[in-house]
């Protein structure tokens, strides 16, 4: 198999790689905020349970979580394994990344001086107005570098979908590597991920720059 054929075949999986990437971000970024707010809840039981869930999600391999979400329902309830593997893959990724984002959000929210809340309170801002208008914009600016880190990691993590045989780019590359006893597909995959992350870096850099209008 020529290099060109390999590249073409693997490119066919790029759409699915992108699907995992974008769907994970779309779901995990807001979900992470909900988790962060639960984690900071004044109700001890809520924050304790949330904290426990976060430690489990961050403390066990993503690969294990992928297998659990994809095949768990079959082993537990005899439910059929979903034919479209994208659903369990995105669920596992979104939950896992939400746990990481939640901790980033929490750190950001806790770094805002209490005086900002007090100033807003005296000026009659409601709790929701204070959070949405005063706190959140400042949090987003502060956490952008950490978010960029996670997004770069996510690009590479999409390759883990091979564990449940979801036909994204890396899974196809691995199949070619096995059938052709060749290492070349892995090099191709490496180049693909690198280019993807160069783009991610550029886009995130632009966003950070747009938030640079104040200090």
């Amino acid at each position: 198999m020529s290099l060109m054929t390999m590249i073409v075949k693997m490119s066919e999986g790029l759409g699915k790689t992108c699907a995992i990437f974008f769907l994970t971000l779309i779901f995990s970024l807001p979900l992470g905020m909900i988790v962060a707010l639960l984690r900071m809840s004044k109700l001890k039981i809520v924050s304790a349970v949330t904290r426990f869930i976060i430690t489990v999600l961050r403390g066990t391999p993503l690969m294990l979580q992928l297998l659990a979400v994809t095949y768990g329902p079959y082993y537990l309830f005899g439910a059929p394994v979903s034919r479209n593997k994208l659903i369990p893959v995105v669920i596992a990724f979104a939950i896992n990344y939400a746990a990481y984002f939640a901790e980033i959000y929490r750190g950001g929210i806790e770094s805002i001086p209490v005086g900002q809340y007090e100033a807003a309170e005296v000026l009659g801002y409601t709790k929701v107005q204070t959070f949405m208008r005063i706190i959140l914009p400042q949090v987003i600016k502060r956490i952008m570098p950490s978010i960029t880190n996670e997004v770069v990691t996510l690009v590479k993590d999409t390759s883990m979908a091979f564990t449940v045989s979801y036909q994204e780019m890396f899974t196809i590359g691995k199949q070619i590597a096995n059938s052709q006893t060749s290492f070349t597909p892995f090099l191709v995959a490496g180049v693909f991920y690198y280019i993807f992350n160069v783009i991610v870096d550029y886009v995130m850099g632009r966003i950070e720059k747009r938030l640079d209008y104040y200090k």
Partner: peptide
């Protein structure tokens, strides 16, 4: 209390302007 709040203003030692 919200109605009372409109009667007074407070200036903080550290200004507490909204930086953004």
């Amino acid at each position: 209390l919200n109605r009372f709040r409109t009667r007074f203003g407070l200036v903080f030692q550290n200004f507490q302007l909204f930086p953004h």
